[in-house]
Nucleic acid binder design. Structure first.
Lengths: 140, 140
DNA sequence: TATTGTTATACTCTATAACTATA
DNA sequence: TATAGTTATAGAGTATAACAATA
């Protein structure tokens, strides 16, 4: 058990440090982590209703209203009325938004890939096995 | 190489999701991620000079001044003059601060451990091997 | 009445520029 | 002059409460 706690501690520090480093890529591309994250939800997760988006991002609805307005001002998203519910708003990612996500995502993956590409086959398999095993940790 | 990029993508998403979940532990303990991170630097990394602390946390000095003041108001740190340089400030973590870090850290590690403890021996070894291999990713 | 989204308000974190005190 | 730290100011993100429009 002491060993498990040691591993958990290492994993925690790893996530903290690498996570911080990846945020730097957002900044270098002129987008905040909060906006980038919302944009990814719009792009890949098919979430485009305002309230759903707030829930998906674990953020209050007023906060999401502001994020969406900022993204809209930057030309990254568009806003449409919900035809089935007069109260609702559908948020849509623009081409410019998709291009930005593609670019930032590519840079982050490159950054990580540079380290993975040098691993020998056995170690690469260990990384894959670890990711498989740790997948449940992502659910929340 | 396509495989490496796929692994990098999975690792990126893993860090994003688990990182967000761990931040919730800070909030549940009434401390912001920024303050908790600075407190950890004071506790474990022997950094206690104001400017050093700002650099270590990748934050401007004015921002660190505010974080330290807030932690001080909460009784988590103490402030001493630097005896060798009249301009300098030494920040010291209090018992209350150490207790908080211990508690939050324990909760985060427990959260991760719950998933690691169920792994079979071979998978646990894969996780360790992965952490060893990915260590260079933490340097920045 | 309940729900969706917005506005109002307030607090935290952040950076840059200007300032004070010491080196 | 240069450096350590602070204060001043401004911008972004966040939440809760109060509100509008629609269901």
């Amino acid at each position: 058990m002491a060993r498990v706690r040691g591993d958990a501690d290492r994993l925690y520090l790893f996530i903290r440090h690498v996570g911080r480093r990846l945020q730097g890529v957002d900044a270098a591309n002129g987008i905040s982590p909060a906006r980038f994250s919302a944009l990814v939800s719009l792009y890949f997760h098919g979430v485009n209703n305002m309230g759903e988006l707030a829930a998906h991002e674990h953020v209050s609805r007023p906060a999401m209203t502001r994020l969406v307005r900022a993204m809209e001002d930057a030309g990254l998203t568009r806003r449409n009325k919900d035809t089935t519910d007069g109260r609702g708003v559908r948020v849509e990612i623009t081409k410019k938004g998709r291009d930005l996500v593609d670019r930032v995502r590519r840079e982050k993956i490159e950054l990580i890939s540079r380290h993975l590409v040098d691993l020998d086959r056995k170690t690469a398999q260990a990384v894959r096995a670890a990711l498989d095993a740790l997948e449940p940790l992502q659910r929340f």
